[in-house]
Amino acid sequence: MTAPALELRGISKVYPLRVPGGWLPRFSDHHAVRDVSLVLPRNRILGLVGESGSGKTTTGMMALRLVEPSAGRILVDGVDITAMDHAGLKPYRRRMQVVFQDSYSALDPMMTLAQIVAEPLHIHGLGSKPEQTEQALGWLARVGLDRSYGNRYPHELSGGQRQRVAIARALILRPSVLVADEPTSALDVSVKAQIINLLQDLQAEMGLSILFISHDLSVVRSLTDEVAVMFNGRIVEQAPTEAIFTDARHAYTRSLLDAVPVQNPRERRHRTFLTRAQLEAATPRLAQADLARPALSQAAPQLVAVGPDHWLEAVVT
């Protein structure tokens, strides 16, 4: 059995939070992410969903080691990269790339598109300059931009085109893992579908593994194989995508799904909303008989199996 493309084992991120007032600065711990474990299998798209402040972006950044975890381990292709130094990490950086929501600020405005896309090859010293440019132009074409775009600059592009450039730059190194952080959130409706299709196609062609971070559940439903739901820095539910949409068990997952706007005016309904305090108190309580696999009976919430590949944070009695 081959190792998964990316695995997070119990990672946490604690930020010191300044306590206001007082003579000397005092800090309390803010847990942005607590004890999150995730497996991104090869050739799969895993959706990581949650609201702002849920810790989903921090988790993605820790997977790339762009944010250092406070605890836990990160494995890429089965190799622990948690403690690697800059030099040791470099070959693994090649295997993990990222696309952000706001590609405009991520593209150097002074560089041409060919230079931007070729830059990763340059950084990793792959090929001669003409070869790098040739590859970059090939990738521009592959993401649906004509080769003539090579001489243009980011400001000449629309939002969707910039996102294509960002994808080309991320994939030119042929990574095995792509972390996509809300890549379609800033796009127009008519362009969003194009980018989602592009990601689908490239994923299939290259056998990519994608960690797709998003708050947009409709996009997640069309794009992902599996979904992990984050709330307050923890994963509260994880399951194959359709199981999440048809058989959500956690109150928070259900409240997220219930909040999605209807697809047709005919489905309009009056909603009742749970408060955050109610959601926080809504950890399910399960008996051993409810579990698909046995777990420890304990008062502390834990992720337990409740169906095929369906995990739920619950208290087991």
Partner: peptide, 24 residues
């Protein structure tokens, strides 16, 4: 018509979407 057809998440399952070619 194209706008309504391209909305993601209308049906179950991972799939390509109907897209509107070109840019605004």
């Amino acid at each position: 018509q194209a706008l309504l057809a391209s909305i993601p998440g209308r049906v179950a399952g991972r799939q390509r979407l109907v897209e509107i070619a070109g840019a605004s």
